[in-house]
Write a protein that binds this DNA or RNA. Sequence first.
DNA 1: ATTATAATGCGACTAAGTTGCATTAAAGTT
DNA 2: AACTTTAATGCAACTTAGTCGCATTATAAT
Lengths: 135, 135
Amino acid sequence: MQLSRIIIGDGLNIENIVKKKNLKLTSARRELLEILFYAKNPLSYEDIKENIVMDKATFYRNIIKFEEENIINSFESNDKKRYFEIFQQPHPHFVCSRCHNIECIKERLDFNLEGYLVENIILKGLCKVCNKTSI
Amino acid sequence: MQLSRIIIGDGLNIENIVKKKNLKLTSARRELLEILFYAKNPLSYEDIKENIVMDKATFYRNIIKFEEENIINSFESNDKKRYFEIFQQPHPHFVCSRCHNIECIKERLDFNLEGYLVENIILKGLCKVCNKTSI
DNA sequence: ATTATAATGCGACTAAGTTGCATTAAAGTT
DNA sequence: AACTTTAATGCAACTTAGTCGCATTATAAT
Ligand SMILES: [Mn+2]
Ligand SMILES: [Mn+2]
Ligand SMILES: [Zn+2]
Ligand SMILES: [Zn+2]
């Protein structure tokens, strides 16, 4: 909710975004973008499918389009699934190996890795909640 | 080659390792561990299957056993595949989005992420080689 | 050598994601 | 408002990594 405001700015709604990219605004696309805009964490197809009425193929074809147009970005977790979120500033993600939650990490992780170009960071382990309750 | 010496120490061969964990030493297990010991990078089933004679189910069942016994560890890349390596000190892995190579990162990446327990780090982007040749 | 049990091969299966194709709906044009 | 063009959709079939049940076989202990 706040996220979508921050990213798309005032006056930019789903209609504007989709049309600005020369995509047709279908009900499938509106549904999908609404869910992603209001999500606090990245979501997989499995997370979303209960709340949408489109076919799986339509889902993935729209996901591909949205990624091409930089409306969303995605990454693979360690559960064989791909997770999607509205495109933001690149930031790390944390995958909890106990509760399987996936969180966006706001903190900057500063390290230097000479010669490489790091585009994406995925951390796995215990999230704050699970780490506390693990004695 | 050097790696396996370092980890398992002098006098510790595949026979010892397997028997120490109360696993039966089968030809499938010997084959699999030999390949993993001599590998410079983590390997997937697809990487290995040409060089082994066991069934896919046997491969994965042994992988599971080896992981339970901390003989190997594994992680998922962004190509939907799982990669396996002989268990070592935890260290990050770099997945190149251009050449799709997977490298073990020796450098320590020091950062603090308050409250979390980071068990595993996967970096994605351009490896040294691809980063140089990308202008 | 006999035996108990763990490991194996085979085939069927699951789940994420992809593709071809005929149909439908969006958006522009008259 | 009807017409047309083209993109988007649903459906079904497919691909691929990994899993599982079950009958058979190999390992290692006795
Ligand atoms: Mn995020
Ligand atoms: Mn490694
Ligand atoms: Zn957790
Ligand atoms: Zn590379």
